[in-house]
């Protein structure tokens, strides 16, 4: 039976079928890769670069980072605190959703892009306390138009590489930083 199938596959028709199948597989794979690599749609195409260039500190909008696990996303009222003082806020097409949010009392539905999987319990606070800056992980936000352009892939190898480096020569710290239970529970 298998012999027969192989024989057919070697016939001209079979080869065409093989090529089509291969193309299908490759294109589906490419689509899959593209799908997971493409940035999500955001309510506002938020330019981090412009805010950072205007000396807005990261912690101004993401104050949770040095308090606890999540850095948090700013509420529209926080945006409005500054933006209501800018005349461009009233006219900018980009800021339409912000005006709507304030007018209608509906939150902006942001989609976080710097994510770790559900089974990782990441905590911002100790990282900041250890002297890391936001740029160490989130890239040079001041020069990136969008947060998702951060070239750093956040995977476990990368986490551990830094943990190893920081704890080298300190057995107590090594125990803590290389422990599964520090991040996975």
């Amino acid at each position: 039976m298998i012999q027969k199938v192989f024989k057919w596959l070697m016939s001209p028709l079979g080869r065409v079928a093989l090529v089509i199948a291969a193309l299908a597989i490759v294109s589906v794979a490419m689509w899959g890769i593209a799908y997971v690599q493409s940035p999500p749609a955001q309510p506002i195409d938020f330019p981090h670069q412009r805010h950072a260039a205007n000396q807005v500190q990261c912690l101004y909008c993401h104050p949770g980072a040095n308090r606890g696990a999540s850095s948090g996303l700013p509420t529209p009222s926080k945006c409005w605190g500054c933006h209501q003082q800018l005349s461009i806020t009233q006219t900018s097409k980009l800021l339409g959703p912000l005006r709507d949010a304030i007018a209608n009392g509906t939150p902006l539905q942001w989609v976080p892009v710097a994510q770790v999987p559900d089974f990782v319990q990441y905590n911002h606070r100790p990282h900041l306390a250890a002297g890391l800056s936001c740029e160490n992980c989130h890239g040079d936000v001041a020069s990136l138009l969008h947060a998702y352009e951060n070239p750093q892939v956040m995977n476990m190898g990368w986490c551990l590489a830094c943990h190893r480096e920081k704890s080298a020569g300190n057995p107590e710290l090594e125990k803590k930083l290389l422990d599964c239970a520090t991040c996975h529970y």
Binding site: P107, L108, V111, P112, D118
Partner: peptide, 23 residues
């Protein structure tokens, strides 16, 4: 891994008093 790569978050319109992100 997660079925949908991105999850939409819905923050408060205005953070209630005494509430901090992630706390």
């Amino acid at each position: 891994g997660p079925a949908a790569k991105f999850v939409t978050r819905q923050p408060y319109l205005k953070m209630p008093e005494y509430t901090y992100n992630g706390e």
